[in-house]
Design a protein around this nucleic acid. Sequence first.
DNA 1: CGACCGAACTGGTAAAGACCACCCTTGGCT
DNA 2: AGCCAAGGGTGGTCTTTACCAGTTCGGTCG
Lengths: 247, 247
Amino acid sequence: MSTSALNARAGLKRDRVRDYLLDLIGDKRPGEAIPSERDLCRELGVSRPTLRAAIDDLERQGMLVREHGRGTFIGPRKVTQQLAATATSSFYAPPADGHWLSRVLEFESAPAGARLAHRLQVSPADPVLRVVRLRVVDDEPMAIERIHLPHALVSGLTPPDMESGSFYQLLRARFGVDVRTAIQTIEPTVTDETEADLLGVPQYAPALLFERTTRDAAGRVVELTRSIYRGDRYRITSELHFDADSG
Amino acid sequence: MSTSALNARAGLKRDRVRDYLLDLIGDKRPGEAIPSERDLCRELGVSRPTLRAAIDDLERQGMLVREHGRGTFIGPRKVTQQLAATATSSFYAPPADGHWLSRVLEFESAPAGARLAHRLQVSPADPVLRVVRLRVVDDEPMAIERIHLPHALVSGLTPPDMESGSFYQLLRARFGVDVRTAIQTIEPTVTDETEADLLGVPQYAPALLFERTTRDAAGRVVELTRSIYRGDRYRITSELHFDADSG
DNA sequence: CGACCGAACTGGTAAAGACCACCCTTGGCT
DNA sequence: AGCCAAGGGTGGTCTTTACCAGTTCGGTCG
């Protein structure tokens, strides 16, 4: 409106709206309604298409559910039903054929903070090393890995250490960390803008989200990793054996 | 505006535009450019937002690729490289807790045809039973299963047989089919319109596509199943154990 | 008292216009 | 010949305005 400047830079209204909605979602419980689109527009000072675009994003991610004529509601909690279990040996391995390399995008240490401290089983003030790397096979980006590990475990680790070779091998050989077990969940998702850029796929492309907690022989948490794998180039293959049976 | 009727029904402009674009894509080769958005608007007599919404859809499906400042291009062919392999044991089992039920949506027998015959290892003229069922847990739709099996194996099977209980148990008890192994691939996808309706999730919601080939003790193919699981309610959990290690 | 119907919400779709950010090309200048 | 800046093309974002389509609920009429 009106004269000039000061609207040029804004950092994308849609992002601002999305953040606002995320806060709002955080404060509410699944099933609860959020304000109507028109109210939110007034509240945020944006047009309805802009607002709707933001809601579209969140709906695609399952955080919101729209119901025509009724309203928009907080999405159901992801049940994390311990649906699958009973794994007895590794079922997944990176492709043996291609040549894996990684490009380190971030490499920094910071205090754990409450959430990470809990999940890594360290104190909130302990430094945690955060490494983000793009994993590449045959010059093609395949996955983005966001790794968190207690910095104390791997003091002296440098970015080039993370660019090739087996990280677990390195942990054992150089740092004496005896990686033993991991619990991993896999769920489908779609790429956001950043991920799409890095992976060279369209935004909202199907992808797999791996979340892995790795422990050493003593049961200490060694690593917490969230990885996004391209859906168009990656699939999980498994062989099932039935003794009794299932549904 | 103006007089009346005849604009009420229209079948959604966006769909009309999408169909137009699909035709256009069919005529071109990957990498080729399509006309500019503004040209297409004039051509089709729709506004740019409407046109862009249609292009958004197709881009999400990977059929088009937009490049800022350059144009919009036909997407690359889907390569479906088989990258992962080396599964050694079972890692996945359906949830034991909730109460699974199924609603049979289709149940019909037809000649296999070339493709199915090959995959089921029967002759193309052999009848194949196709069952589509919606799997429900606690009144909530969880997955759509499309099952194909040689009709000869299960003559006398009725739709109610597929609505509850363990299908594999039934196969063994009633038909003497000794289900033994399965090879399964899992990949991420997004729901299409029909799937979204059935599962009660938005279109383009993240989902898991399971494809399973099941064999009996004699190595005969018993079943070929493609299932779509809701991504917001379903995740795979697995526990990994390292002897040597991996990347 | 009950069934209906309509007002007033809700989200869904669409138009038209403006301006920004990016890319490539071209033409002028060095 | 080579460099560089400007222009005109592309897609990207946003606003404003309008109307359609389900849902709900309360008032009215039978």
